[in-house]
Design a protein around this nucleic acid. Structure first.
Lengths: 193, 193
DNA sequence: CCGAATACGGTACGGCCAGTACCTTATAGG
DNA sequence: CCTATAAGGTACTGGCCGTACCGTATTCGG
């Protein structure tokens, strides 16, 4: 060991270690002791920076992903919607998503943590993408103007999320995604004439 | 000490004690030791019957509620749907619902437990109620026949559940319920012509 | 260049709780 | 009455969060 790490350098090392633990063992298996050992430091250094395990978990989760969700543009509303759902399904069904779900479960009791989670999971960005997708469809005359409504925009993702919550979940089958689009989303858009 | 309790009698006592603990402290605060003491017995008697805390929690939760969800019949689809959502919202936002959410969070990792939860929380009954509601609307010519589809029937409750998951949650405001019905459910039904 | 602050490393706890082991004692059923 | 079965009692392991204490390296102000 050349020099003793301090400040930002040590902080990054801790976050990296915590993120690795998240990846390997999920949030439930992320132990403060193990994170400390893995980062080559001790729990003191951690607790000086984050008040609880949950706070560290959330901070480390951010380290895991800056997964962006670019706007797909397939030319049809149906194609765009399916693409969005499929990408989301991939993300959420990866180990990645399992971690996020573990964190969510742990944060469920604490509104402050939930708030943090929402900020960092990019849900707002996603909602905007859906809305602009709808607006493009309106511009193409593929949907009535009233279809570009926030509640409509958020519905498919909400259904997908609920689907995860209902099942034990590794992945939602593709048929379900198609059904959400064809049996709910498109009729809904059509019905808002 | 009159006689030593055995079998079903003791089992009931344990379940009652566990249910009381759930009511007072939620699932997170339900300790095996406390349940044992409260039931006037010891942990052995519990572990002979249920393999983990989670199993006991689920069994005890059932003891808490046999809340039935009768079919409302207000004469209009909109009225029925709103009534269903409002009742569900009441149930879920009560202390009762908090316990259920705690259990769900704990069971989130374990598919077997999730299955148990789903069985016992009456979700299937609820889905049937929504479907028969839609069928009545079709019979009244208030909705196109294609509207009586399982995916349509489950959509409003899924949206409500997702709403709970997103917010920290005490109660979902009534406006949201109205919005789910007016901006999503009814347009969706209409759009399935 | 030196002496504090300051932050890190090491280690050892306290406390809580799940689950287990083991033995004693009552009860039911043959 | 006698034995298998199940309850009571109690103690213990093991994991983990969070904290306390203390020695030690590094930085920074003077």
């Amino acid at each position: 060991m050349t020099t003793r790490r301090r400040g930002a350098e040590l902080e990054q090392a801790i976050l990296r270690a915590a993120a690795d633990e998240l990846r390997e063992s999920g949030y439930a298996g992320m132990t403060m002791d193990r994170v400390a050992v893995r980062a080559g430091t001790n729990k003191n250094a951690i607790y000086r920076r984050w008040p609880h395990r949950a706070a560290l978990g959330i901070a480390a989760y951010r380290h895991l992903s800056d997964a962006v969700m670019p706007n797909p543009d397939t030319g049809t509303l149906r194609g765009d919607a399916l693409e969005m759902l499929r990408r989301a399904n991939e993300t959420w069904s990866s180990p990645h998503g399992a971690i996020l779900r573990g964190l969510l479960a742990a944060a469920a009791e604490d509104p402050a943590l939930l708030e943090l989670m929402r900020e960092r999971s990019g849900a707002a960005t996603m909602d905007r993408a859906w809305l602009s997708m709808l607006e493009r469809a309106v511009a193409r005359d593929e949907a009535p103007p009233a279809a570009a409504h926030p509640r409509v925009a958020t519905t498919p993702m909400m259904l997908l999320r609920a689907e995860y919550a209902m099942r034990g979940i590794p992945t939602v089958p593709d048929e379900v995604l198609v059904e959400i689009v064809d049996e709910v989303f498109l009729p809904l858009v059509r019905g808002r004439a």
